[in-house]
Each structure stands twice: as structure tokens, then as C-alpha cells.
């Protein structure tokens, strides 16, 4: 087994890892403030990919709008659309459930997942539609010195890392972030100090959804866009979150990256286990460190 094979699988794994990181980051941010797990996070990711696809290929055909939203524009437009939907969901539905057991939030978002998934399954092939909008400037491969790697994938890795660490910086090191953390720590007290906590909650949910949508755009040129792409991913991300613990933002990012890497390497060592290795790692973590690697559960 050559070093090139291992390195390329490691990089491909890292590529998956950045998606895990972006999604678990979004889950962690939402969980921190709302105390709910957004099952629809995978559906938001799928939605992001579909909005990019529709914006690129179907606007004219379906809506008679003579406009094509390219890949670069999608990186801005899609998070706004998906984030907007997130805000709508939070304002109209989730808001009513805050007084109840947190499992109702999970159940509600599960229902929303079914709706979104079913809707897209009606109009698109379940086995996937390719996204044709990958920009010319990102096609081809780059020479990394020791191996060649697809330019687009490298771009996706770097771009996602910037977004993840940017989010971490904002939350941990800015004034806005400190307010957010205050809201996580003690919502009532934060409200008393004159900060609009309900607005923070809404925007946080919107932001988490937007992150998932952005991950969807980045994934669209790599994987074929399918109604089921989110559901399969979100369950793995749940395992990532259980392994990492949702106590820290950095923990969510790092465990996402590391587990993507592990999954990529498993593909080289023992391919049949690649789809389950993260779940087995979760079992080990539950046995030996039940609160998660970065967790601080009481």
C-alpha cells in the first residue's frame, strides 16, 4: 500500500470531515442556546444543495425567470434562503415547544425532515442529479508535491475550514460571541441585562441552518444531489456529536475533522467497515468516556 493511496484517502476523508465539522458545529451552536437537536439539519444540508442546483439549472424552466445563479453567488444566496427557512421554522413552530420536554423539538424537526425529503423525492431522482455549476477555475487537479488532488475538493476543504474557525473565533473572541455565550449560560439573567434573548435564539437557529445550507452547496459539485443525501449524513453527524460532546465549539469542529479522517483511512484499511467505523467509535467512547471527548455533562 503506497503512501500516495493513504494520503489521498486521508485528504478525501478530510473532505468528508469538513462537512461533518460544519454540520456538528451548527448542531452544537443550536443546542447551546435552544437545547434542542435539530433533526432537520441533514434536510437543510440537502436543501442547500438543491437550492444551488435549482438556481443553476431550473429557474428558467420552472419559474420562467431568466436567471442563472452561479456557484459563487450560491455560496451567498443559498445560506440566506436556508437560514431564512430556519428562522421561519423557529418563529412559527419551535418557539411553541420551549416549555416542553426537549424531545418534542427533535420530533418536530424529524417531521420537517420527512416533509422536505418527501417533497424533493417527488421532483428529483432519488439516485441523484449531478450539479453542473462547478466553476471552470476550480476544475482540474493541483500538484501538492507528493500527489495530485482535485482542485475543487481542496477549495472545499480550505473554504469550510475558514468558515468553521471563523465561527469559532466570533463565538469565543468577540463581543457578539460573549453575549451569545451569556445567553447559553443563563438566558434569564442575560435577558435582564437588556439583551434580546428570543431574537438571539431565532438568529442562532437561522445561522445553524445557514451553515448546513452552505455545506450543501459545497457538497453539490462533489456528490450527486439527492433527496436522501442529508438523512444518511445527519445520523453519522449525530454519532460525531455524541463522540465529541456538544459542550465546546472547538470540540465539535475537531471531532468532525478527525472522524472524517478516520473514516477515510478505514476505506484503505478495511473498506466494508468504512460506513460503520464512526458508530463503533461511538460505542467505545460511551464505554470509556460517556460524557464525550470534549463533553462536560453533569
Amino acid at each position: 500500500m503506497s503512501i500516495q493511496v493513504i494520503m489521498s484517502q486521508a485528504l478525501l476523508g478530510l473532505n468528508v470531515g469538513v462537512f461533518y465539522a460544519m454540520l456538528s458545529l451548527g448542531l452544537a451552536v443550536i443546542f447551546g442556546l435552544l437545547n434542542i437537536i435539530n433533526f432537520a439539519h441533514g434536510a437543510m444540508y440537502m436543501l442547500g444543495a438543491f437550492v444551488a442546483l435549482i438556481g443553476y439549472s431550473y429557474l428558467d424552466q420552472w419559474f420562467g425567470i431568466n436567471l442563472q445563479i452561479g456557484f459563487w453567488a450560491s455560496l451567498i444566496v443559498v445560506p440566506l434562503v436556508v437560514g431564512g427557512l430556519g428562522i421561519l421554522i423557529e418563529r412559527t413552530m419551535l418557539k411553541r415547544l420551549y416549555q416542553l420536554d426537549h424531545i418534542y423539538g427533535l420530533l418536530l424537526t424529524f417531521g420537517i425532515t420527512l416533509i422536505l425529503q418527501g417533497l424533493f423525492a417527488n421532483f428529483f431522482n432519488v439516485s441523484g442529479t449531478p450539479y453542473p455549476g462547478q466553476p471552470e477555475s476550480l476544475s482540474g487537479v493541483v500538484n501538492l508535491g507528493f500527489m495530485y488532488f482535485p482542485t475543487y475538493r481542496l477549495f472545499a476543504i480550505v473554504f469550510s475550514l475558514v468558515v468553521c474557525f471563523g465561527t469559532w473565533y466570533v463565538i469565543e473572541h468577540t463581543k457578539l460571541g460573549s453575549r451569545l455565550r451569556a445567553g447559553v449560560e443563563n438566558p434569564q439573567l442575560t435577558q435582564t441585562f437588556g439583551l434580546n434573548v428570543p431574537l438571539m435564539v431565532t438568529l442562532t437557529f437561522g445561522f445553524g441552518a445557514a451553515l448546513a445550507g452552505l455545506a450543501g452547496v459545497l457538497a453539490a459539485p462533489i456528490y450527486s444531489v439527492s433527496p436522501l443525501m442529508g438523512a444518511d449524513l445527519i445520523i453519522v453527524v449525530f454519532a460525531v456529536v455524541v463522540i465529541g460532546g456538544m459542550g465546546s465549539i472547538m470540540g465539535a469542529i475537531l471531532s468532525g475533522l478527525a472522524l472524517g479522517l478516520v473514516e477515510g483511512l478505514t476505506k484503505v484499511i478495511y473498506p466494508p467497515a468504512a460506513s460503520t467505523v464512526i458508530f463503533f467509535l461511538m460505542v467505545l467512547v460511551l464505554l470509556f468516556r460517556p460524557a464525550g471527548l470534549f463533553g462536560k455533562e453533569k
Binding site: 415547544l97 416542553l100 420530533l107 418536530l108 420527512l114 416533509i115 418527501g118 417527488n122
Partner: peptide, 21 residues
Amino acid sequence: YGSWVQVILGTIFVICVLVFR
């Protein structure tokens, strides 16, 4: 109705959680 079943079940899910617990 194919995939619409999923949409309908999802809608029932949402309604149950919101108003018919």
C-alpha cells in the same frame, strides 16, 4: 401517491407535536 405519503406523514408528525400531543 408515492413520495407524497412521506410529506403527509411528516405533516401529521408536525401537527401532532404542535397541537395534538
